[in-house]
Each structure stands twice: as C-alpha cells, then as structure tokens.
Amino acid sequence: MSWITDEMRGIVGKVMREAVSHPIALSDIRKWAMAVYWPEPLPRQYWDEDYAAQFGGIVAPEDFNPFAWMAAKPTPDDPPVSMSAFRESELGVETPDYKAILLTEIRARHGAPMRPGDVIRCVWKISDYMEREGRMGLMLYTTLS
C-alpha cells in the first residue's frame, strides 16, 4: 500500500499556488504580536512608531503571515482554496484520503523585514513526497518549498 500515486509524482516541482498579499497593515502587525506574546504585553517595537524609529521603523515579527484571512491573489473565489492548507486537488490531482494533515517541520530563512505597506508575493511547490510507518500507520510526508 502506498499513498503516493503516479499522478502525485507527476506534480512534484510544479507551482501549486502563487499568492500576492494585500499591503501589510500596521494593525495586522500589532494583532499578530499581541497573539504570539499573550499573556505578556507585545514588545514596544511592534506598536510604538516613535520608539521603533531608532530601529528603522515598525517591522513585522519574522513569523508574521501576510496571507492570513485573505490575499489579493488568489481572490476568495478563485480558486476556492484555503490559505492555510494545501491539497493536491489544486493541481487537478486527487487528494489522498487521509485522516488528518499535520505540519511537522518548518524551516524559515528570513531576508528583508516586512514593513507596513509592503506587498508580499509567495510561490509554493511540492518538492518531495516520502512515506514512513508511524503511530497512526503509514504516514505521507509532503515537503513544500
């Protein structure tokens, strides 16, 4: 038994989604930092423009997701996909009938900081599939890059 079909192997390396964010809002940065640091107060550099000026102005935390809730592209009706989940069906391939999807590893390299007003473009590809027996049976590991 294998989760990986020939159709799935055929989409490795192909662009599955390209997204363009709306301009980053200062309030989105504040809310993100509040959520991550709660119950501690959010650090001053994420809300106090006068204080942040000594560091070049307010920037988003490196972990900030500019695509949450809604992007400029894709629009909510084109295609009808979640911005927080990935499925092979976005490339016209049948999605495996799995019980759950879990994120098991994140490797982030940060370049220029994200600032209020910035528009971020992101391209996702499936770069690898592998399988391994786990606690819940045969598990499919999909690497996105």
Partner: peptide
Amino acid sequence: APLLHAYLHAMLRQWAGPSARIAAVGIRL
C-alpha cells in the same frame, strides 16, 4: 505548529533585543 514556530521567534527576540536580526529559525515537531 506555526504558533510554536512563532514562540521560538519570540524567545529569540526577547533575548536578542529589537536591533538584532533573526536570520533563520527551524523547528521539527
């Protein structure tokens, strides 16, 4: 998982201060 990844960033930022540059963070759950 993204929240745990964000927690690591917060820990590093609290240690390193606002002028430091967090260049990379990886997490394996």
